[in-house]
Design a protein around this nucleic acid. Structure first.
Length: 194
DNA sequence: TTTACGATCTAT
DNA sequence: TAGATCGTAAAT
């Protein structure tokens, strides 16, 4: 598979706010059924620590949140709303729980597979939500704990194009309306201008 | 064992 | 605007 250009573990061992910002423009890559699927990351959200009441780790270390307390650069994939999977990259060194939710990508490779997996939907809606992109890329609970810094797990992130600040919009995180302030409103969501 | 509620998506 | 649908964590 040639030279690995996976982002290294040190790159993830940083504040999730920085990782979320810098993940914009990077490439999410998935090896699925012998096909390479690739998307340019266009939207992310940071979740940081047990004190962040929007973070799953607010309940502390459990079976579910365990990977967030582990090595940075590992995938945290969780199941929600009874039917959806969401993909995160774990950040910061072990024992401090933090992760970045990948909310949207722009598909660039493997379009035939992606369109088949998102049959009946408009192209603009293929991967414009966290559970849509996991459906499109065939990511589910089996990828929980997979190392994103290596191609071995069939799911990784490569360096891509850097996105200038003028192209970045920040805002509050989505889907946390029952979370108390300040966590509900902190601008920890990052996206590339359309 | 039971309950309440989701880091969502889709159709209405 | 509401229904789908079930794992997780806390309450009973």
């Amino acid at each position: 598979m040639g030279l690995s250009s996976c982002l290294p573990r040190d790159w993830y061992a940083r504040d999730p706010l920085l990782v979320a910002r810098d993940l914009l423009g990077m490439h999410l890559v998935r090896l699925l059924d012998g096909q390479v699927l690739r998307g340019v990351i266009s939207e992310t959200e940071a979740y940081r620590g047990e004190e962040d009441l929007a973070c799953h780790a607010r309940v502390g270390r459990t079976l579910r949140t365990a990977v967030m307390y582990g090595q940075p650069g590992v995938a945290y994939v969780y199941f929600t709303y009874g039917m959806h999977w969401c993909l995160n990259a774990v950040c910061l060194p072990p024992d401090f729980p933090a992760a970045v939710l990948i909310r949207a990508v722009e598909p660039v490779d493997g379009l035939a597979v992606i369109t088949a997996r998102r049959a009946g939907r408009l192209r603009a809606r293929w991967t414009d939500g966290p559970a849509k992109l996991t459906q499109a890329f065939g990511v589910d609970g089996q990828q929980n704990g997979v190392d994103l810094t290596s191609q071995a797990g069939g799911l990784w992130i490569e360096a891509g194009e850097s996105v200038p600040d003028e192209q970045v919009i920040t805002g509050p995180r989505v889907g946390i309306s029952n979370v108390p302030e300040p966590w509900r409103s902190v601008p920890w969501r990052f996206r590339v201008k359309p």
